[in-house]
Design a protein around this nucleic acid. Structure first.
Lengths: 145, 145
DNA sequence: CTTTGTGCAAACACTTTGCAAGTCC
DNA sequence: GGACTTGCAAAGTGTTTGCACAAAG
């Protein structure tokens, strides 16, 4: 499990929100999805654990988590919004279009790109989570080069 | 006007599609929007020229244009799908979150980034149209740095 | 004249909201 | 007990589809 449940749920209480069973289940669901899960997937995952939880509760809860900064929203290749537990530090991903593998990009590499953009255009990039789509080493065929 | 109407409409005929008034109006609308217009905006623009054109016709037509490669679909910062006339060559954009300005990024700069990703991860990027969000030189304040 | 495209209306999928009942503190 | 949350149902959005009529070739 990639989240420290107590820590996350403490954030709720500190802000005056209550600690309900539903919120715990939904937090676990986001976490177990391992990142980049859509609303629909999270509703499904939540229901596997407890089928009584309403769709609207999942929506409300995830939007609350996003507002509190516990969960990050990013948009995938098809323009679908996906959610993941916020990690300690900013990170960026490569996602393979064939196998779906998700590869962390070293921040350094992206920072360098951002720095170049800034140098060339005086443009300050504001993207905490860059997602780049392509084909990973494992799935690559000669024609992809 | 950034499209050569005859050329674009010839593509339709070559593929056995018919040349209707609606399709011409919608093509103009996409073009006049100047890139990154949503479906809703295009429906609106189309209606300004001819209010009889149905929403569903705009949807069907734009999806057809995308299928034929006349129009490009990309996703903006909010995960909304936007459309623009396909240009001669691949290009990438910076979009300013404040003023909406759209700045073309030299391909060279992006290619370099892609090359680095490939070197580091043996990862072949497949994104024809990278959109990077941030703040442009004109809108930047000291706190953005 | 034949085939494709359009408008209309209905159906869908996804998300949000009002409210009464239930739960947490 | 009092405020916050939830489930339910209904209402919004945005997009797609079936069909009869209109238009293009």
């Amino acid at each position: 499990m990639s989240h420290d449940k107590l820590n996350y749920l403490d954030v709720l209480r500190e802000q005056g929100y209550r600690l309900t069973r539903q919120r715990q289940v939904i937090l676990d669901a986001i976490c177990q999805a391992g990142g980049h899960a859509t609303m629909g997937e999270l509703v499904h995952r939540t229901r596997l654990v407890e089928q009584g939880i309403d769709r609207s509760t999942v929506y409300r809860t995830i939007n609350l988590f996003v507002k509190l900064g516990l969960v990050n929203a990013a948009d995938d290749e098809n323009g679908e919004r996906t959610y993941e537990i916020v990690q300690e530090e900013h990170h960026h991903h490569l996602i393979c279009k064939r196998c779906g593998a998700e590869i962390k990009i070293e921040n350094q590499l992206v920072d360098e790109f951002y720095r170049d953009l800034k140098a060339a255009y005086e443009y300050q990039v504001q993207m905490d989570h860059l997602i780049v789509f392509g084909v990973c080493a494992h799935c690559k065929t000669p024609s992809d080069n």
